[in-house]
């Protein structure tokens, strides 16, 4: 129960961030011609930001099933790496059906918070997932129903929440570890190159984020491999 509550607390800022991001998703879904309940069902069953956004863009046209599959696979490729990373930290009892069920909640932010744990228990991961899921669903519902009520500057300001949260996740460990600073800088610069250089800017952001992160991690892993015994604790 203690682990569950600790997870719940860890998920609060994520839920808050999701509330604002999915609110925007709800508004966009309506503008793409979906019904409010369709937006909510998508959010409840998918629980991802970039993938859902790309998904409703594909949905405008009929019969684009293959395009839907390919775009989802590339955008979501990063989740596989996160799942592999967390599989190494899951506690002894966190296996089998529990992993099949809770694997659903592997979002960027839940992963980021969970990866700070030495060992992840089932209860902690479940607790961590509750508020983000509620926030994501509720935000979509509110956004699709009353999205046009909020003043635009309030809405715009809320969109930075998720990035503030990312900073709070990466900066404290980066302060203690030069390789972490390097991998962050490298990944950020690479993605800027993907974004701003005309030749690369055609690449969907899901793919370019994955590529930037993979290249940066490979380079830093070669330059600064973590110590054998301590594993992730080598900071």
């Amino acid at each position: 129960m203690k682990q569950f509550l600790r997870g719940l607390r860890g998920g609060f800022p994520i839920g808050l961030g999701y509330l604002s991001v999915s609110f925007t998703f709800g508004i966009m879904a309506i503008s793409y011609g979906l019904e409010w309940w369709q937006a909510v069902v998508i959010s409840m069953l998918t629980l991802t930001s970039a993938g859902q956004l790309a998904g409703i863009e594909v949905m405008i046209n009929p019969g684009q099933y293959f395009a839907m599959l390919i775009s989802q696979l590339t955008i979501n490729m990063r989740y596989s790496f996160m799942s592999i990373a967390l599989s190494q930290k899951a506690s002894k009892g966190f296996k089998g059906i529990k992993r099949w069920l809770l694997g659903f909640f592997m979002t960027d932010e839940i992963f980021a918070v969970a990866s700070q744990e030495r060992e992840i228990s089932t209860k902690f991961f479940l607790g961590l997932s509750v508020l983000p899921y509620v926030g994501w669903t509720l935000g979509t519902l509110l956004g699709s129903l009353i999205g046009n009520v909020l003043p635009t500057i309030v809405l715009a300001s809320l969109c930075i929440a998720i990035y503030g949260m990312f900073l709070a996740i990466i900066i404290p460990p980066a302060k203690k570890s030069k390789p972490v600073i390097l991998v962050c800088a490298l990944a950020g610069i690479l993605h800027c190159i993907f974004y701003y250089v005309p030749l690369f800017s055609q690449i969907p952001s899901g793919i370019s984020i994955s590529l930037s992160a993979i290249i940066a991690s490979i380079v830093v892993s070669i330059l600064f491999p973590i110590s054998e015994e301590k594993g992730a604790a080598n900071e």
Binding site: R78, F81, M82, I84, A85, Q88, D108, F111, A112, S115, Y163, F166, L167, I169, I170, P173, A174, P179, V180, V183, C184, A185, L186, A187, G188, I189, L190, H191, C192, Y195, Y196, S205, S208, I209, S210, S212, A213, I214, A216, S217, I218, V220, S221, I222, F224, P225, I226, E228, G231, A232, N234
Partner: peptide
Amino acid sequence: RFVRSFLHYIPYAVLSAMILPA
């Protein structure tokens, strides 16, 4: 060791790539 290092660094790399420049 290489895979363990890669898995250790990947979350920071993913978050940084998501922050910059979006």
